[in-house]
């Protein structure tokens, strides 16, 4: 399956004072998808984002955005993309409308274009009521919505979001996710950084797990999870001497991938829990083997992260955003 490529990153590297922030990064972002750069702080995802939006020049490799080079064609790249920086990138003294008016001038929109687009955007992000209040009176969620309206002002083909829900409450978070999904429906390609696993899992079509400036895994969240070897069913058996017998019976059932016997039970990797679980329970019944405890869990993105990077993303959960 070939899909149109919106962004092509090839052997990208960025070195600051001999420290490699980004090291030989290659990936593609397809048109119309939500692509996530997932990693802990200092992993290099913000650096990558800044290169893509032309704010940083790479020390090696290249990035093309809709066929335009991020360095040589920087000015044309800037015209085709929208950028939503982190929450505080707001002028407290300006009103929401004034933010959009300022950006309209910076994107060289005509007065007529601005006059039609600004009210549309304020409506889209539900900020019409607060549009003429200074941004210092806005809540975190409202600031974020204004940020997104600002990012959408140039009517971009690609929208870049830097940690879109950092520090937001749950409800605001869900609203922002809805907005991001709406953008995908409007045909906008979305590239975002995040250090929230659930955000990457639920919002992104594909993710790149980045750690230490390198890509550790790339793909759709469910593919990455399946790649770990399927869902895990753990059984604890009441009569420990029957473990072997049960293992033998379970092994040949449908949708079972691997069975590992432990002292007190079994760890079973399954392809599809819908098929496997009833079959396993039936087998246990047939053998009149009593089960003490059943635990079923799907591999979570944390499991992928740990498997690929050798550590948990929460090990250094940040208190502030990275540079």
């Amino acid at each position: 399956m070939t899909r149109p490529v919106a962004i092509d990153v090839s052997h990208l590297g960025k070195t600051y004072d001999k420290v490699k922030a980004v090291d030989d990064l290659s990936f593609q972002v397809y048109s119309g998808e939500i692509f996530g750069l997932l990693g802990p702080n200092g992993a290099g995802k913000s650096t990558t984002l800044r290169i893509l939006i032309t704010l940083l020049n790479p020390t090696s490799g290249s990035a093309t955005i809709l066929g335009l080079d991020s360095v040589k064609d920087a000015d044309r790249v800037r015209q085709t993309i929208g950028y939503v920086p982190q929450e505080r990138a707001i002028d407290r003294f300006l009103t929401g409308r004034e933010h959009l008016e300022l950006l309209a001038d910076l994107y060289h929109l005509s007065a007529e274009q601005a006059a039609t687009r600004i009210p549309q955007l304020l409506k889209l992000v539900e900020l019409e009521q607060q549009a003429d209040r200074p941004a210092k009176t806005y809540s975190g969620g409202m600031k974020r919505k204004l940020d997104i309206a600002c990012g959408l002002l140039p009517d971009p083909k690609i929208l870049f979001l830097d940690e879109p829900t950092l520090g937001l409450d749950v409800q605001s978070r869900l609203r922002i996710w809805d907005h991001v999904r709406q953008m995908r429906e409007r045909g906008i390609t979305v590239v975002m950084t995040t250090n929230y696993l659930d955000e990457a899992d639920q919002l992104c079509d594909r993710i790149a797990i980045i750690d230490g400036g390198r890509i550790k895994a790339l793909g759709a969240p469910h593919e990455l999870k399946v790649g770990l070897g399927g869902d895990l069913v753990s059984l604890t058996v009441r009569e420990h001497d029957r473990v072997e017998q049960l293992a033998a019976a379970v092994k040949n059932l449908p949708a079972i991938r691997a069975v590992t016997a432990k002292a007190n039970g079994l760890d079973i990797r399954v392809d599809s829990p819908e098929k496997a679980l009833p079959a396993i329970l039936e087998a246990a019944n047939r053998l009149t083997c009593q089960l003490e405890f059943i635990d079923y869990h799907r591999p979570r993105l944390d499991d992928v992260f740990i498997a690929r990077t050798g550590r948990s993303i929460k090990d250094d959960q940040p208190t502030t955003e990275d540079a």
Binding site: R50, I53, T54, L55, D75, R76, R78, Q79, I81, Y83, P85, Q86, R88, A89, I90, D91, L103, L106, Y107, H108, C150, P154
Partner: peptide, 13 residues
């Protein structure tokens, strides 16, 4: 410091 400059610089000015 608050990233507003970055926002400005990401526009085609």
């Amino acid at each position: 410091e608050n990233g507003f400059l970055e926002r400005l610089m990401s526009t085609p000015i």
